[in-house]
Design a protein around this nucleic acid. Structure first.
Lengths: 144, 144
DNA sequence: GTCAGCCTTCCCATCATGGCAAGGTCAAGG
DNA sequence: CCTTGACCTTGCCATGATGGGAAGGCTGAC
């Protein structure tokens, strides 16, 4: 299977397959005489694993760890669970942060007439210098 | 006020102030004889506005729009509301996406003994090629 | 043999942010 | 007047995962 077929079979873009190889998340694929990458079923399965893990929000770094556990027949399931639970906590923290933004914004928007007049509690809040406190690092800025 | 004082007064790092100037989110600051940037109270207020908007998750692009509305005394509040509501919808979409991940992961983790034995529904799910369907672009991958 | 459709590598961009380095400026104190 | 330390300047690099595109090589079908 060349990279295009592997991409279709795994749902991972060819671009990302090359990237995963480059960052050593997967082993360098075999090459054909024409220098084309060649993928076995085993590698397709790894790509599918990666794809599924990415769709659950795991970082590439976490996936590297998960892959190594997956390959280790003697792994303790504890280690897998630790990674998953840690990720769940991280997700929940982000969710809470975003939910707080939503709550604030809905509040402000509720008070905004949304017509031709210029008065607007949203702009009022932004210009009020609200919450100029030193916030815990995790709540500064935003990664969409 | 030089950039350090402006940073402390606004809560925006000096680095980011320079960046915002570079990408033209704010006008180039005046310079002193020694080529130091010099900020007026008006500019400090803009920086505070930006900081607050960032803390609510608005992108720099959205903030550029919000700033222009803020400066426009004749703005229709409708335009502000459109931006805020659009952002709320985007946040809610991300939240829903992440919540789905959390739900799946909690489910899988619940079934994982988390002990020395290798059996693990989390790995089983990942290797199952679960959900290899062509998903709507928004749900592929993840931006933490 | 030709041509379309693959593949290869390499470079660039995203978005907001931090870090580091080399060098210029300024103010206080000796 | 000179030193010193704290500040400022610009510039480059890195992040994380992904897409886009260019220039050129390979393959398979006609």
């Amino acid at each position: 299977m060349n990279i295009g077929q592997a991409s279709r079979a795994s749902g991972v873009s060819a671009k990302m397959i090359r990237y995963y190889e480059q960052i050593k998340l997967i082993a360098p694929a075999d090459r054909t005489g024409g220098n084309y990458r060649s993928f076995s079923d085993r590698e397709i399965n790894e790509l599918r694993f990666i794809r599924r893990a990415r769709s659950l929000g795991f970082s590439v770094e976490e996936i590297a760890h998960l892959l190594s556990l997956w390959r280790d027949r003697g792994r303790p399931s504890r280690e897998v669970k630790v990674i998953a639970d840690g990720h769940v906590r991280a997700l929940e923290a982000k969710i809470a942060e975003m939910q707080a933004m939503v709550d604030t914004l809905r509040d402000l928007s509720r008070g905004c007439a949304g017509d031709e007049r210029p008065d607007c509690p949203i702009l009022a809040d932004l210009s009020s210098g609200a919450a100029p406190r030193r916030e815990p690092a995790a709540s500064r800025g935003f990664q969409p």
